[in-house]
Amino acid sequence: MVEPIVKYRNVHKAFGDFKVLKGIDLDIFPAEKIAVIGPSGSGKTTIIRMLMTLEEPTSGDIIVDGTNLWKMEKNGELIRANEKHLRDVRGDIGMVFQHFNLFPHMTILENCMSAPIHVKKEDKNEVRERAIQMLERVGLGDKLNNYPNQLSGGQKQRVAMARALVMRPKIMLFDEVTSALDPELVGEVLEVIRDIARNDDMAMVLVTHEMDFALDIADKVLFLDEGVIAEQGTASEVIEHSTNERLQTFLHRFRSV
């Protein structure tokens, strides 16, 4: 039996009085592709933001590769993790954002090279080679020395994926990566994700509204509703055999669009 690479155990998150997540239990296995679907405000994004350490859970545990992410041991007691602990644990996690968040003052190539060089202290020439390779893979080998503001939204998002891939994460998080794109640019970005899903053996968690795409590539689909995982299983289990009424309404709305 393979051990999960990430475990959520009874994770809650509240923003002030507003409870976003009310007890999440979830296992992510190595190389597993998970799609998270659900209505707006159901807390989908919060789930992966907590794993990326952008949001701290209100209670519960997230275990990454056997280590508690948000808590650390000190004198035999579990206390709130400090910056160093977070950095030690989140090193194998990468993320792609809705609004790309490319660094505007760096070229495309520099965007992809800065973290491996400064964070992982890797050899510059080796990193350059790998970064170019990744950018070629996402179809941007001819834009290496361009700046982000010279690219289209779809191209920016492909750079963001290359930037994350160069770090060789074991887990990649995708936060509604096509939501900010013009409709005609969505396809090229999905193509890259499909390519990664097929050829790389990292675990992937996709928060998305691209229903058909998600169902196509996902090993497991989570339906998040009102702060809990209301339904989970393979794509066909969730789509075709679920009796959850809210899920059916949700899917129906998408189908009719």
């Binding site: 996690i93 954002f97 973290a115 964070v119």
Partner: peptide, 20 residues
């Protein structure tokens, strides 16, 4: 978003300030 992207690339607080 710039800080968040830098965190996602596992940069330290000082690196985030200096590089990004």
């Amino acid at each position: 978003g710039q800080t968040e992207a830098a965190i996602a690339l596992n940069m330290s607080r000082f690196q985030r300030m200096r590089i990004i």
